[in-house]
Write a protein that binds this DNA or RNA. Structure first.
Lengths: 152, 152
DNA sequence: CGTCGATTGACTGCATACATATTATATGTA
DNA sequence: TACATATAATATGTATGCAGTCAATCGACG
């Protein structure tokens, strides 16, 4: 660590640690790291979320899928590319609307998802473990409230 | 999936919205969007955080800087590239350790930071605005607690 | 003084995330 | 039918974030 000499005094002392945007970013980093520790490198957080969404509501096009889990439409294509390359989902042009690719999970995909599920739940447990049970509930409620207003 | 293995949790329990990792990601998306709305495209959240850190503790090398604000060492290089291209920071080889690049903010950089500061504070206000004052304090406390355990 | 382990920074590759443009296809309307 | 508009998917460019590799360099040790 270098010796920091104070050479510029800022008119406004900005404490980045006090900024929600900053610590949300760092919490996100923590969550991603835990995910990769527990689940491994076979599956990323985004790929897992996509797999779950596809399994729960098959017959959706890519855009519907993206909207449902909060991805960008331009991003979902690449995610599905990688899931398709692993043989976990399939893309089929819709007959009703030939612009659409209907995305469905494959048996191999279901198996991969089932294998990952326990690890993913460990991630959530570990992530929240610094909080006691009451705090966990409050944290979830406040996050939902924030999302509800900003997305709804 | 045709095995006789009972997978009870597969059919129901995968509610992504209930997973902290998932809604933290979406909160992060919200924060980034608000940032770009208020601050504009001149400066990204990461670039702003870097600028603040550089201004507050000049004389640091890139790795120290990265550690201080939670970046990856491999990422900070590109961030500083872009700040340097705008003339907002400078890189100088250290005399004590010639592997190090000492990063410092320029007058133009200080000006850019000062201009962005009000907008950045509006971001934080808007982000937390769905919560009342008590809830905001609780939210910040819980986030800090999570970070304290996971990073400390 | 020379060697070795650790550190730093540069670089590559992969995976998001988003904006924008483009292409193909649908759909509403004149 | 012809045209304008809307939508789905893709391609491109920029910006992060992390893992891994490499060379240069530093500090410590013999």
């Amino acid at each position: 660590m270098s010796s920091a000499r104070p050479d510029v005094e800022l008119s406004v002392a900005l404490d980045m640690d006090a900024m929600p945007g900053h610590y949300i970013r760092r919490l996100q980093q923590v969550a991603v790291r835990l995910f990769s520790e527990e689940v491994g490198s076979e599956l990323t957080p985004v790929q897992f979320a996509a797999l779950v969404a596809i399994a729960q509501r098959s017959g959706l096009g890519q855009a519907d899928l993206a909207a449902q889990i909060g991805y960008d439409r331009a991003t979902i294509g690449g995610v599905i590319d990688r899931l398709e390359a692993k043989g976990w989902v399939s893309r089929t042009p819709s007959r009703e609307d030939r612009r659409q690719n209907i995305v469905a999970i494959t048996p191999a995909g279901e198996q991969a998802m089932a294998q990952a599920t326990a690890a993913v739940q460990r991630v959530q447990t570990r992530f929240l473990s610094p909080l006691d049970s009451d705090e966990q509930q409050v944290f979830e409620r406040l996050c939902r409230k924030l999302l509800g207003y900003h997305l709804g």
